[in-house]
């Protein structure tokens, strides 16, 4: 009798483990991505994005890449406003 109960407990634990493993994590798995480099060409004049007087506007045609006023952050600073 005691042995049977023990077996039931073991089965319960095993089921709990399988259930824990088989569920998908909310929002899906977190992909393990390698570091990479990206670039954005100017959608207006298709020039490569050069840094001349700031980050917010295209250095060649003045197109506004970003509609925001940069402040002093971690790497991006106030001076990076075009």
């Amino acid at each position: 009798m005691a042995e049977e109960e023990k077996k039931k407990t073991l089965t319960y634990v095993e089921k709990l483990k399988q259930q824990a493993l088989s569920q998908t994590n909310y929002g899906g798995e977190i992909p393990d991505k390698a570091a990479r480099m990206e670039i954005r060409d100017c959608p207006n004049c298709s020039a490569g994005r050069a840094y001349r007087d700031g980050l917010t506007n295209c250095a060649y045609c003045g197109f506004r890449f970003m509609d925001s006023k940069l402040t002093d952050g971690i790497h991006i600073k106030k001076d990076n406003n075009s």
Binding site: K33, I39, R40, A50, L55
Partner: peptide, 10 residues
């Protein structure tokens, strides 16, 4: 002088 964006690994 092109601005690239570096995306760190996960």
């Amino acid at each position: 002088q092109t601005q690239n964006t570096f995306m760190p690994s996960s």
